[in-house]
Write a protein that binds this DNA or RNA. Structure first.
Lengths: 330, 330
DNA sequence: TTGTATGCGTTATCAG
DNA sequence: CTGATAACGCATACAA
């Protein structure tokens, strides 16, 4: 019950030096100021006692928690695995911890948590598809906390996003080139910038009247949406899906309707997830590098933390033509 | 550049009260101690100034950061999406933030621990398949940080794990009942408790000499391992895979070898991931509730944080027979 | 009901 | 090269 924490004072006493010497040693500022012998002494005492610098005290004093927060709408989607990996790896290399907030697609919660995070547990924020918190009325502009917006855009905030417009155009263009005239769009139910971009690009190439059904990123939901689309308009020869999980759902629907892919129906996905690779045939998809997205997001945040104003970036995506697309049956 | 943070002192001055009054209001202890009028006054001043209590100072003072750390070996595996979701949701409900550490399969705690422990002020640790940090020589036993071990076991630490033994037995038993005599095991390359359990269970039911190939949790690696197994012993009629991602890799291998599932080869997976559902045919698998696993892990940690000594738990898993298993061709 | 004083464990600025 | 000493922002016992 009495979990007495061991502090730098204890270490100092044990090593027979002053507390500030211990501090110097542990904050890496001992170089050329503390003798090697003393340093070793302190280290030994610390190990013996099991001393760990208190992060809260350090954060309070220095004003930096060395922690960044990453807010995502749905950790359950495999795409975020890569994003997390990239952000986390980069952060660790820079000596930062990552606090993860999964909003479970609850936008209000996203906003709320982003705001809460600004309190100081986090030195900076990486927001995936969630809007930055409103600036407090009295807050000074220059006191704004570093923020990087991912897959979204926001006045005055640095952002990274995938070139989804290019990707969508490539995907739908590919379908058109194969000769598809009747293309359906299985779209995300979530009204977020990245999906708006896709919608616009689809409409541009496939026509404003493109049949569209919405779903979230679960197999069942996607399956239903595809079914709905295919029932409503049996003349559809191709489906563009906002994500590979959705594409997988479309495969389920096609299997049920006994429409063979790609002979009876072409399907294109987005993201380049494993789930798309194991489909039979493997789905043609727009490959995005989620790990790189996470890495760049942290890099941009890190630059801000260092006092710079990095430029927003757009990452390329690439259409990978696999087995799910073919000319329509005439 | 001069990001002056606004403190409780500023708010106090603005509201014309003392700093402690502000503190009382914001720590929720104002009830019955501060008049409603004063409380409102303070709140108004805080909003005007954009005041947010400093988390580091609060953590330092109270000794609790209201943050827990979750250490996982590979965020990239979809199984962890569920785990994260469960842990995160439960933590949020209890007012805790979650810091995520992805060790990227870097098995030795040495690398991870430094980050993990200094990963900001975490009040407790949830460790997935990674060994707890060695107790410091001089550390007092009762000063140990609350720890929950997931899918692993460790002397003296509370743990949650899936009943993988039961699941594996059910899976392999199912294969035996169908009449399979020659069963191969596509196993994880990582030597962790949960996989040792599976190995033992497989050997028990399928015989000690069970052919086995190892791989990590990527499609390509799993595909190679399955290929290797199938080449080395063409008489194999069934494959038990340590995970659905691995099972998906096995499907890839089967497709290449033109062995039809389940007619020429039965396959069983583990975890019950989406990737297994979209395979054609859907894979028979041992379904584990990752979300629940995460939820319980936090629950156990939370209990420890409250000063209790909760019992370790074992969560049930269930065999879901789908289309990938059938009697062997005679 | 509100204000005063003090300390949490660290870092940082100085003297010595 | 090392040791006092003063903050950092908040919470709380105690005084008013």
């Amino acid at each position: 019950m009495s979990g007495d924490r061991v502090t730098s004072v204890d270490v100092a006493r044990r090593a027979g030096v002053s507390q500030s010497t211990v501090s110097l040693v542990f904050s890496g500022k001992a170089e050329g100021r503390i003798s090697a012998r003393t340093t070793a002494l302190v280290r030994a005492a610390a190990v013996e006692l099991g001393y760990r610098p208190n992060a809260a005290a350090r954060a309070l004093k220095t004003g930096a928690a060395r922690t960044v927060a990453l807010v995502v709408p749905d950790v359950t989607n495999p795409f975020f695995g890569g994003l997390l990996r990239g952000a986390q790896t980069a952060a660790r290399a820079a000596g930062y911890a990552v606090a993860l907030i999964d909003t479970a697609n609850d936008r209000d919660w996203g906003a709320a948590s982003a705001e809460a995070l600004q309190a100081g547990p986090a030195d900076g924020l990486m927001l995936f598809e969630v809007d930055p918190p409103p600036r407090a009325p009295g807050a000074r502009a220059d006191a704004a906390e570093p923020i990087v917006v991912i897959e979204s855009e926001s006045r005055g905030h640095t952002s990274v996003r995938l070139d989804v417009e290019d990707g969508t155009l490539a995907a739908v263009g590919h379908l058109r080139e194969l000769g598809h005239e009747r293309i359906g769009h299985v779209a995300s139910i979530h009204d977020r910038p990245t999906f708006r971009l896709r919608r616009r690009a689809v409409d541009r190439l496939a026509g404003k009247g493109t049949p569209r059904a919405r779903c979230d990123f679960t197999l069942d939901s996607a399956r239903s949406a595809a079914l709905e689309l295919l029932h409503a308009d049996p003349s559809l020869t191709a489906l563009f899906c906002d994500d590979d999980v959705i594409a997988a759902g479309a495969y389920l629907a096609a299997r049920e309707l006994e429409r063979r892919i790609p002979a009876d129906l072409s399907v294109v996905g987005f993201d380049g997830l494993d789930i798309g690779r194991v489909l039979d045939p493997p789905v043609t998809t727009v490959v995005a590098d989620a790990v790189e997205l996470g890495r760049v997001a942290f890099e941009l945040l890190h630059a801000q933390l260092a006092g710079n104003r990095p430029r927003s970036r757009v990452l390329p995506v690439e259409l990978a033509v696999r087995g799910s697309t073919a000319p329509p049956r005439t």
